[in-house]
């Protein structure tokens, strides 16, 4: 294909991506360098019969004018990145100096908003991803052994939790585990504690979100592995059987190695999706105990009346850097494959 033709074919999609993905990243970066204007304060002295009193008032007109002239706010350099709500170098340094044990240091860092969200996001990703991989493979092998008539319906049922809108799916689960819902009430009955609420403690909230995450993403790994199982060469399986391998051994030494390329694909997809965990926190109203990186950006932008664009921008940039770090191994591997194919 000629460069010219290629250019015309790619133009619509490329311009959409440049205008609405690449440029916004630049805009996010620029925003993160600014902070919103301070309100313009006017100090006026009012003198009455009991002496003079100084009062401070917000000059709304001047503040509005300032905002109009420079909507981005005032230049702050990288200040937003290192303040308390983000990387918090000063606070982390303080905590390192003032605490004696690692546990105490950890507690203090955990209280900083950015690190708190980062820790939750990473924990969520690190627990959900392997769980979904293992359970997905187990269920795929199970369904593969089902009679033919039941395979279709079981795939149909499995697709529901995956395709349902994340916000809606987590709401459905939330209503069930709520104190008055069917699962929540049963749990209270089992533990004989009428005040037990899954929202009450950090550990329970995290567990609830992780259970949702597994429920929501399990079908993806299950169906991908199930499709992979259809391509396992039957010759190899039979050969292994003749050599005396048990069913379990055949699964571990023939089927699993055959599925390995799929495992890396599924892992990549799961990492990308789990890292952006956001909707369940809104649905479960779990923000008191669990905040993800996406959620704190959303919260900054929602700040009524005065959205914190600078703060949201800085968190967004840090999140994007996190995504790139997460993807680096994949990018390097694809680059090597591409070069091998090209030469």
């Amino acid at each position: 294909m000629k460069h010219r033709t290629f250019f015309w074919f790619i133009l619509p999609t490329l311009s959409a991506m440049i205008l609405f993905i690449a440029l916004p990243i630049v805009s996010v970066f620029l925003q993160s360098l600014f902070v919103q204007h301070e309100q313009v304060l006017v100090v006026s002295e009012s003198c009455g019969p009991f002496g003079c009193k100084e009062s401070t008032k917000v000059d709304l007109e001047a503040t509005e004018k300032l905002r109009e002239e420079a909507p981005m706010g005032q230049y702050n350099g990288l200040g937003t990145y290192i303040n308390r709500s983000h990387l918090a170098f000063a606070e982390v340094g303080n905590a390192w100096g003032s605490t004696t044990t690692f546990g105490e240091f950890w507690d203090q860092v955990f209280d900083l908003p950015f690190y708190n969200a980062l820790i939750f996001t990473l924990t969520y990703t690190a627990i959900v991803t392997p769980l979904v991989l293992v359970l997905g493979l187990a269920i795929a092998i199970g369904v593969n052994g089902l009679p033919k008539l039941m395979k279709g319906p079981s795939i149909f049922v499995s697709l529901l939790p995956f395709l349902v809108t994340p916000l809606v799916g987590s709401l459905i689960l939330f209503w069930m585990v709520d104190g008055d819902g069917v699962i929540g009430a049963t749990i209270q009955l089992i533990f004989d504690d009428p005040n037990l609420s899954l929202k009450a403690s950090t550990a329970l909230t995290w567990t609830m979100l992780i259970v949702y995450g597994v429920w929501h993403t399990l079908p993806f790994s299950f169906i991908t592995f199930y499709a992979g199982l259809q391509t396992v060469p039957s010759d190899t399986l039979e050969a292994a059987q003749i050599d005396g391998a048990s069913k379990w051994q055949r699964t571990i030494f023939v089927v699993v190695p055959h599925l390995m390329p799929l495992v890396s694909f599924v892992t990549l997809m799961l990492l990308m999706d789990n890292f952006r965990v956001f909707e369940p926190i809104v649905s479960f109203s779990a923000e008191a105990h669990a905040r993800s990186l996406s959620w704190i950006i959303y919260n900054d932008l929602r700040e009524s009346g005065n959205p914190l664009y600078g703060s949201a921008g800085a968190t967004s940039m840090l999140t994007i850097i996190g995504v790139v770090i997460l993807l680096t191994p994949v990018l390097i591997r694809t680059w090597r494959d591409f070069n091998r194919k090209a030469h």
Partner: peptide, 30 residues
Amino acid sequence: SGFRYAFWLLMAALVFRAMPHITLVSGYLL
């Protein structure tokens, strides 16, 4: 297209695909 820039476009698309949507939204608002 077998050109090298086709590969780079696909890689860029992969990174874009992985970005949480809310990070972009904060760039749109202003």
